[in-house]
Design a protein around this nucleic acid. Structure first.
Lengths: 232, 232
DNA sequence: GTCTTTTTTCATCAGGTGATGAAATGGTAA
DNA sequence: TTACCATTTCATCACCTGATGAAAAAAGAC
């Protein structure tokens, strides 16, 4: 909003960054991440990013090319990490509880990495989740990337659920997944709406409160939909 | 994307609109609604809106003032209608089932008006829901308006639920509401993600499939969270 | 030290942005 | 008719946008 305070500045003109241990490329990505999360792709100018990063505008184009490529770079930077954390979490759960998996356990293994990373990962990750939530309901901005990285995790979830509820139909599982992801993304966005709505009783940032409720909520939802399909 | 085709054009220069039954103000709102929904506030220029509406740029400022006021006008136009439909639906349910209300019934009365309007309201309403979903996780653009109109409906929901589950804690009800609204908004956005994810098994636009699952899903989720709180 | 390569900055471009004041238009009322 | 007034258009402003080519500065190779 106001005049940006440079966070990294090269000494003179030359090439000091790597010698000083400053990676301007990362600094630019950090700045862009925060701004894109707050204002969206079109709501941010390359000059704002440059100012926030304490860097000349041209440097952004030198490293990333067009503005859209910068956005993609921001999106990709953490996508792989996130993806592998979730796959590992699912793997670990399956290996540890293979004989007696529960819906709630599987769903927890699917969601918990995100909560944990959001809690422990610092502000960068918080911004990143806001960004992912944005992309999640504006597929035009990276829906393809979204699909490329996250479809495998989702299919892993669905297949695992199918293993422990063989009678469930795929249609039901996919719809339930959509409901789950809507809850999850809105929660990770930490918009503050629940704070004002509940007049201070709940806090967006209280992910422990989420953990205590969301897994059970979703598991019961899946169960109900599966059961209802059996009846109808 | 491409060259816009004018949809309404005044004959010469003067003031033919009302005589012809054409309300250019509404035409502008329609055009703005569709564009804002697709590209977001900053992703749309007043010139694009003008072109889509078949109108001069200056006319937009004549009717609405600044661009942001145009956005607010778009948002407000349908907010009141939506709000009253939902309050009426809740009222009707309570009056009809007062002695024996169910969680699923109350939740259905809360959500169903949106599904019905989205199904029967035409493209304008579809765009509007995308817009509301956008605002829902970008509170900076109209979160205040959002709260002003929709908080009363949410409180009505929560109070009604508290009536039929007096043992429930408000904290739990608010968290569950957040989960519900996340599922609902993502669903109403009809992003098409479920279509590709399920390889054609499900369709974003199939709101009948949503009706058959979402109410039961949410009701079971609420029930589980309330029950778990009682135990813990 | 000189040469080369990478990084950073400067200066600038062509085009687009939201916005406005003034003029044109034609319906309405006297 | 004539005067008025809401509506619509035109022309334009000051500023910002993403992007680029060339120059400057520093690090590393020899």
């Amino acid at each position: 909003m106001t005049a940006a305070k440079p966070r990294a500045r090269a000494s003179g003109r030359g090439r000091p960054s790597k010698a000083k241990g400053l990676d301007l490329k990362e600094t630019i990505l950090d700045a862009a991440e925060g701004l894109f999360a707050r204002h969206g792709f079109y709501g941010v100018t390359t000059r704002q990013v440059a100012a926030e990063a304490g860097v000349d505008t041209a440097l952004i184009h030198y490293y990333f090319g067009a503005k859209r490529e910068l956005f993609d770079a921001v999106f990709l930077r953490r996508a792989e990490i996130l993806n592998q954390a979730r796959l590992a979490s699912m793997d670990a759960y399956v290996k540890a509880h293979a004989p007696a998996m529960t819906l709630e356990g599987v769903i927890g293994a699917f969601i918990d990495p995100l909560l944990r990373i959001s809690q422990d990962g610092g502000l960068g990750w918080k911004s990143y989740f806001v960004l992912v939530a944005q992309v999640n309901n504006t597929p035009a901005w990276g829906g393809e990337t979204m699909a490329r990285f996250f479809d495998p995790v989702v299919h892993r979830l669905v297949e695992t659920l199918k293993t422990i509820r063989p009678e469930a139909e795929y249609r039901d599982l996919f719809w339930c997944y959509q409901f789950l992801t809507g809850s999850m993304m809105l929660t990770l966005s930490e918009t503050g709406r629940i704070d004002s709505l509940s007049e201070g009783e709940c806090h967006s940032s209280d992910l422990e409160a989420v953990r205590a409720r969301l897994f059970a909520y979703c598991a019961a939802g899946f169960e109900a939909v599966i059961a209802r399909a059996g009846k109808a």
